[in-house]
């Protein structure tokens, strides 16, 4: 299953040239670009592993693309996303987020229904991948 988090998951996977254009757009807005990766793409997994710190004081998308290349090489079978942070008052949060790498196989999620009183169901979404220890996922 193809997870559809991020800004562009309904489009064909972005080429490196297209990723560069999006990164440059973020930098041109004065935003700070960061790379994060994970083997647990649960929708509420807020804290993916950071590939270093957000790249402050960077003006050229080429630098980000080099880091992305390194991150992909180290984590070829992980989810990797590019984020853009806006430090300006009124935002001070993420302004962009899109996937730039996926595992070859995406096992997706199980919807666990716990039946309770009054016809109520308590739902849990479980990543199939997390049944394996982190180091052995997507092998």
């Amino acid at each position: 299953m193809r997870i559809t988090q991020g800004q562009f998951s309904f489009l064909p996977d972005l080429t490196d040239e297209e990723i560069t254009m999006q990164v440059q757009y973020a930098l041109d807005q004065g935003w700070i670009v960061a790379i994060e990766h994970t083997t647990d793409p649960h929708p509420r997994n807020a804290y993916w592993d950071m590939w270093g710190q957000p790249m402050f004081d960077l003006a050229d998308a080429a630098g980000v693309m080099m880091e992305l290349g390194d991150c992909r090489q180290a984590n070829p079978n992980s989810y990797i996303k590019i984020l853009a942070f806006d430090s300006n008052k009124g935002f001070e949060s993420i302004r962009m987020s899109f996937l730039v790498n996926r595992p070859a196989e995406e096992p997706g999620f199980e919807l666990v229904r716990a039946e309770a009183a009054g016809r109520q169901l308590n739902y849990t979404i479980r990543s199939y991948a997390t049944a394996q220890p982190a180091e052995t996922r997507y092998r």
Binding site: I3, P43, G108, F109, L111
Partner: peptide, 8 residues
């Protein structure tokens, strides 16, 4: 829908 897309 959330489980089938990975989105909130």
């Amino acid at each position: 829908a959330s489980a089938e897309t990975g989105e909130i």
